[in-house]
Design a protein around this nucleic acid. Structure first.
Lengths: 237, 237
DNA sequence: CACGCGCCCTAACCTAAGTTAGCTTCGGAC
DNA sequence: GTCCGAAGCTAACTTAGGTTAGGGCGCGTG
């Protein structure tokens, strides 16, 4: 798995050698970050667009009363803020979940890519549409599924997305979220997240220890949570 | 308010006379639909992209157990399914809330527009990014706000979006959702929606009767629900 | 090596919201 | 003009999940 971004894009849209080369070239400037600091903050007008190469990050908003909602999990190959190429101002923040390596791409480069390379423009377009599809499914998750189902659905989704970039070993993957993070993602209290995890462990569906999540029976997990991967658009259809 | 789509786009991106003319030209083929039938269904591969000119529609998914989650409210000027230009297959359905007039635009036309008219391409891009911003805020709404706050937040958002297309008279607008629709949107039971509405009426914040919603004190409503319109990106920033 | 802190875990209690079961009102169809 | 169905409304009861208040453990740092 050389480059997670290209691995991801080519699941959805064809990219010719020239486009791939151009993309790789654009991804030369790296930066590292660790949990605790934000990659980008609400209100910022970043000059660069950020893309995750390694590690996990997340999109979130804080409310006036201190509550936090996590709105996306950003995995290797995901853009953090492609939208600032057009919207300019961030309406939310990007936090870091594990040691990450990000690529910084100047906004003008994005504009050059999208106007001069129709294949790349299409690929970026595709990536944001898939992200939208994921958010729609998260709305379903929070609105209609009980805590245990919602959590299992999330675990299935992450497995599917991580598999694309080669980050699933067997039926396990690194899982850097704390229980509080999980709560802020699913709209639950961390106490209830803990209860639910105990329950899932008890019925032998998953195990989660030392930052590694193992799914014991993925088909069963998908069934009980209603996970159907079509919204990830992983097969060129 | 001649064309809601152009009214909306020009809030975010500049459009020259040539782009406007081309867009108007593309919006010639109309179609009508009424509540009860779906405009597009999950799994479809529509040949046309749909844009609302008049009336309300909504994006939704059904679960196996019959539950429904509404994921977007589509108002005049909103695209129903711009994504099928790239993703091809619908991963959700579009339902109708009131008598609607929709424009049908062939997929090839969209491709022609985005490749040949950089101004229009940018405008469409902008529109989908704003839609994404709205979905992020809905996640916050469902995950972190109690029923009454969430509902008021929705009423504020709709007021702001409808104002852009000239559909707010004074402090009232047409509101075609049933209490059950509202429940499926906010992740609540219709009984609880009713309770909450009674409570809001009782404290004189809103009135809702005969399909018309009136906001008595918009500033107060915005404050109690934490509504800040920045995520709608209504001022070119 | 001990101190602190972040994270995990647990129990007891509470409440916002769900469920079940029904009544009412209104408008359209026959 | 009465029948029917959709939508609104209400009460009584239940429950999923929140809150408060802790305890324990592992590990990074002085």
């Amino acid at each position: 798995m050389d480059n997670p971004f290209i691995a991801k894009l080519t699941r959805g849209v064809p990219l010719d050698a020239r486009d791939k080369a151009r993309l790789l070239q654009v991804m030369s400037r790296h930066r590292e970050a660790s949990p605790g600091v934000d990659l980008i903050s609400e209100g910022d007008r970043p000059e660069n667009v950020h893309l995750i190469l390694k590690g996990w990050a997340f999109r979130y908003k804080m409310l006036a009363d201190g509550r936090r909602q996590i709105m996306s999990i950003l995995l290797p190959g995901d853009f953090c803020d492609l939208h600032v190429a057009i919207l300019k101002r961030m309406d939310h923040s990007i936090g870091v979940l594990s040691k990450v390596t990000v690529v910084e791409i100047p906004r003008v480069t994005i504009e050059e890519l999208t106007s001069g390379h129709p294949g790349i423009a299409r690929a970026l377009w595709w990536a944001t549409l898939v992200e939208e599809g994921i958010m729609r499914e998260w709305l379903v998750n929070m609105g209609q599924r009980q805590a245990d189902r919602a959590m299992c659905h999330l675990f299935c989704e992450l497995a599917a997305r991580l598999r694309v970039v080669g980050l699933v070993q067997g039926s396990s993957y690194e899982f850097p979220l704390t229980q509080e993070d999980l709560g802020d993602l699913l709209g639950l209290s961390s106490i209830h997240v803990n209860r639910t995890l105990q329950e899932l462990r008890g019925s032998d569906l998953i195990s989660l220890q030392g930052g590694v999540l193992t799914i014991n029976d993925e088909a069963k997990l998908a069934k009980m949570s209603g996970f159907k991967p079509d919204y990830l658009h992983l097969d060129a259809d």
